[in-house]
């Protein structure tokens, strides 16, 4: 059984078919890079997995739990980082993370302990008690990651987590995801930055116009398409649809 299983997933908006029957299986302990051009359906897929968008058809499960019929139970296992999100500007990260922890069913004592733990891991400790509005973009992204990790989930769903970060920040995010998977947990993240994918992914999936059109390890894909790097693979695959 895969940690994340998606079968024939469809999503129709008024005038666009965002997903046309997506099939995807991600095994436990993997880092899965979800690539594709803008509008390919990456964000829609992630949003469906966390119950923010309702699918028109198909099936999806996380840790064997049907996300449509038992979304709450499925979300216990998920840490989600959207592409863009807001945080209360006048709050401190500690207060914000406490609230997100409570919403995940944690006790206050556990939350306090966990905040210190995560802050240490992702270099957020110095900013925990400053107002969010005064915190830099890179550190804001750290807070976003911290809220996804606060309840110690089994599965991470990150939507473009490295976009807009400097190389140090990017590496930290990538290391966090890799370390997470090395503990036997699962990461699905969408990105345009293929060098990130090459660095940490076990498997890469390329989605185009709502369908998964290519999948394999970075090495397999390079060999199959006789390409020097994933950028070249991506250009070949995406341009041929």
């Amino acid at each position: 059984m895969g940690a994340i299983e998606i079968k024939g997933l469809k999503k129709d908006y008024k005038d666009v078919q965002a997903l046309k029957g997506l099939d995807l299986v991600i095994e436990e302990g993997q880092v899965y890079g979800f690539c594709g051009p803008n509008g390919a359906g990456k964000t829609t897929t992630l949003k469906i997995l966390v119950g923010l968008v309702y699918a028109t058809g198909g099936e999806a499960s996380i840790k064997g739990i049907d996300v449509f019929n038992d979304g709450v139970e499925a979300r216990r296992h998920v840490g989600y980082l959207p592409e863009s999100y807001g945080m209360p500007r006048w709050d401190t990260p500690r207060k914000f993370l406490t609230y997100m922890g409570i919403l995940s069913g944690m006790s206050k004592a556990d939350i306090s302990k966990r905040i210190e733990e995560i802050a240490g891991e992702i270099n957020l400790t110095d900013n925990l008690d400053r107002r969010i509005k005064a915190i830099s973009k890179g550190n804001k992204q750290r807070i976003g990651i911290a809220q996804a990790l606060i309840h110690d989930p089994d599965t991470l769903l990150f939507d473009e987590p490295t976009t807009g970060l400097d190389p140090i920040g990017r590496n930290e995010v990538l290391d966090t995801m890799r370390a997470f998977a090395d503990k036997g947990k699962t990461v699905l993240f969408s990105t345009h930055i293929l060098s990130d994918v090459e660095k940490i992914c076990d498997t890469v999936g390329i989605i185009h116009e709502g369908l998964l059109i290519e999948e394999g390890s970075p090495e397999e894909l390079r060999q199959k398409h006789e390409a020097e790097d994933l950028d070249e693979v991506f250009l070949k695959v995406a341009s041929h649809g």
Binding site: V50, G71, V72, R75, Y80, Y85, P88, L103, G105
Partner: peptide, 15 residues
């Protein structure tokens, strides 16, 4: 919604 916080909150295990 306007603060785009809704995605973060509803990704928690609550209905």
């Amino acid at each position: 919604r306007t603060g785009e916080r809704i995605g973060l909150v509803l990704s928690r295990p609550i209905t």
